[in-house]
Amino acid sequence: MSKQQLNKFYLVSTLIVSGQLLAAPSLENSVLKKDGNESSLQEFLGKVVYVDFWASWCAPCRKSFPWMNKVQSKYQQQGFEVVAINLDVDSASAHEFLAKVPAKFNLRFNPDGDVATAFDLLGMPSSYLFNRQGELVQRHVGFYEKHTAAYEEEIELLLKE
């Protein structure tokens, strides 16, 4: 078994054992755009969507942003979107973070944290991968650079469907 296959097996088996694979947050939740207007994540239906929850105080989030920029750019033309949802209560903290760690993907804000609660957020950052039908197919708690090849393989498989 290759290292990449082993990483994928580890990720999937961890999700199955933890019972997270069958949990089903949806894209129906409303979040705020940068301009303060409300938006539904359903605007991304028909695309493979990587929803990531982050906060300005989250050290691993600083590592995940460059990777999310990369995959957004690499797969956007194939129908892929990264949507990063900030949970900072103080938007100034989020904007300070973004000045240092720019995002080239969709940003949304949820200062009330109700969307994070609906997604049953277990840690920061947490990401959720949805297929084109809006069904949750993968969940990751934390961001690990050593697993980025496996994360990317999951995206590629969904884009081929």
Rank of each mutant, 00 (worst) to 15 (best):
M1I: 03
S2V: 06
K8H: 14
K8V: 10
F9Q: 08
T14W: 09
L15G: 10
L15H: 00
V17I: 03
G19I: 02
Q20K: 07
L21T: 03
L22Y: 04
P25Y: 05
S26H: 01
L27D: 01
N29F: 04
N29L: 01
S30R: 09
S30G: 06
L32Y: 15
K33H: 03
D35V: 08
D35P: 09
N37S: 11
E38L: 13
Q42C: 15
Q42N: 15
F44W: 02
L45H: 07
G46Y: 01
V51H: 10
W54L: 08
A55D: 04
A55F: 10
A55C: 07
C58K: 09
C58H: 11
R62S: 03
K63G: 12
K74D: 09
K74R: 13
Y75P: 09
Y75W: 11
G79Y: 02
G79A: 03
F80G: 03
D90H: 12
A94G: 14
F97W: 11
L98N: 06
K100W: 08
F105W: 00
N106I: 05
L107T: 01
F109C: 04
P111R: 03
D112P: 03
G113K: 07
D114F: 04
D120F: 02
L121M: 12
L122T: 03
G123R: 02
S126R: 04
S127K: 12
S127P: 11
F130S: 03
F130H: 07
Q133L: 09
G134N: 02
E135S: 04
L136I: 09
L136S: 04
Q138G: 05
Q138M: 10
E145V: 12
H147G: 01
T148K: 04
A149E: 15
E154F: 14
L157N: 11
L157R: 14
L158S: 11
L159K: 08
K160F: 00
